[in-house]
Simulated scan of single mutants.
Amino acid sequence: MDSDRPRAIDHLVLPIESLQTSRERLEALGFTVARQADHPFGTSNACVFLADGTYLEPLVIRDASLVGESVRGGNVFTGRDARFRGGRLEGLSAIVVSSTDAAADHERFLRAGISAGDMLGFSRQALTAEGAPVTASFQLTFADLGSDLFFLFSCQRINPLPADRSVLERHENGVVALREVLLHGAAPDDLVKRIETVTHAAGFSEADETAFTLANARIRLVAGAETASGADRAVKAAAVVFHVADLTVTELLLADNHLPYVRTPHRITVAPAPGQGVSFVFEE
């Protein structure tokens, strides 16, 4: 069973319209992108694996009929993806935390009144570094944050993906780790408690933001002008912050690929574009 220590971020889910567009965009940004992988319920991904063990999951609808069937059958993963796509074409829809006991997570979410629905167990085919087929299996448990544009869930790897991803974890832009996920939205006590329940990380509030320090990265919830006024209280993801080994290397790559960016002394920000979804921030 998982301890009460802060959880680690496992991966980020980024709904996009085209895997090809996403691959081209992410490769232009200097990321190494894995081959396409298909889920049994009609979605597919082409992931970006980082050296710290986290990864980005660009997610596309491969088979609309399979997805629709799974939504009608109560699949929370595809159901929440459909709700997100109904309000926003692309973006970052979920933070996923690592779990060693998804069933215990589900029971805890039920007791706390934050469960988003039934657990989801599934398997899919993958390949080892040598090209041999293996079956990877997962158990997912979902939490509701009261927003169609963002939610949290935990992932237990019953039969993990092949461990040797060293080639995929090397990126021309110098990215070595996930540092932070920036969310926009008001931070009432109930929302903070929900995030704390999922992440096991206590929220620290100061001025107009609340920060949650997880085992390997931080979640920062900031009230923007629209949320401060109460016009839009929905939580939504705004940016992913990466740690890079050398910011100059990152800047040279972006310049060579003719990608617009904003440079300040300690960071580079790249605005969202098709296949990317949210702002990407690079920091040493």
Rank of each mutant, 00 (worst) to 15 (best):
D63E: 14
S44L: 08
T250I: 08
V76M: 09
A217N: 01
T227S: 15
R124P: 02
V33L: 10
I195M: 09
F150C: 06
T269Y: 08
R194C: 03
L14R: 01
S115T: 11
S99F: 07
I9A: 09
Y55Q: 10
P160C: 04
A228R: 15
R108A: 13
A239R: 03
L66K: 08
R218P: 00
R157S: 12
L259C: 06
R194Y: 01
R157P: 00
A104F: 04
T197E: 14
H200I: 01
F31E: 04
L140N: 12
A207P: 03
V278L: 05
A51K: 11
G230A: 13
D246Y: 04
R165L: 15
R124D: 07
R80T: 01
A116N: 03
P274T: 09
T264C: 10
F204P: 00
V67P: 00
G30W: 02
G68Y: 02
R218A: 13
A126I: 05
E24S: 09
A238S: 15
V192P: 03
R218Q: 15
S3M: 13
A225N: 12
V262T: 14
A211L: 12
V240F: 04
I219M: 12
P58S: 10
E57H: 11
E169F: 05
A132G: 12
F153W: 09
A271F: 09
E17T: 11
T248C: 03
V281D: 04
V181Q: 01
G68C: 08
D144E: 08
V60S: 05
S93A: 15
Q276I: 11
L145P: 05
F151C: 04
R220W: 07
P6F: 11
H243P: 00
G42F: 05
L59M: 15
A116V: 03
G113P: 02
E180A: 14
R62C: 06
A238I: 01
F150I: 08
A215G: 14
M119P: 03
L56K: 02
N173F: 07
F204T: 15
V281G: 00
A223C: 13
A234S: 15
T210R: 09
G68P: 04
D10R: 01
T128I: 08
P274A: 13
A104D: 07
S44I: 06
I9K: 04
V244L: 05
N159W: 10
D4R: 13
D2E: 15
F138H: 09
P15E: 02
I195R: 05
V97Y: 04
L254P: 00
F122I: 02
R85K: 14
S99K: 07
F41T: 00
E172N: 14
R88G: 05
R218W: 08
A231F: 14
A126S: 15
R88I: 02
R80V: 00
I95R: 05
E209F: 14
G79I: 02
A37H: 05
L29D: 01
A215Y: 05
T210N: 13
L145G: 06
S229V: 11
P160F: 04
A116G: 03
T54M: 12
E283K: 10
L254K: 01
M119L: 11
G277R: 07
P58L: 10
L168D: 07
E69V: 07
D190C: 10
L168P: 00
S123M: 04
R62H: 13
L50D: 03
R124Y: 12
F150K: 02
T43H: 00
V192Y: 08
A103M: 11
V67D: 01
T227M: 10
L254H: 07
L259N: 06
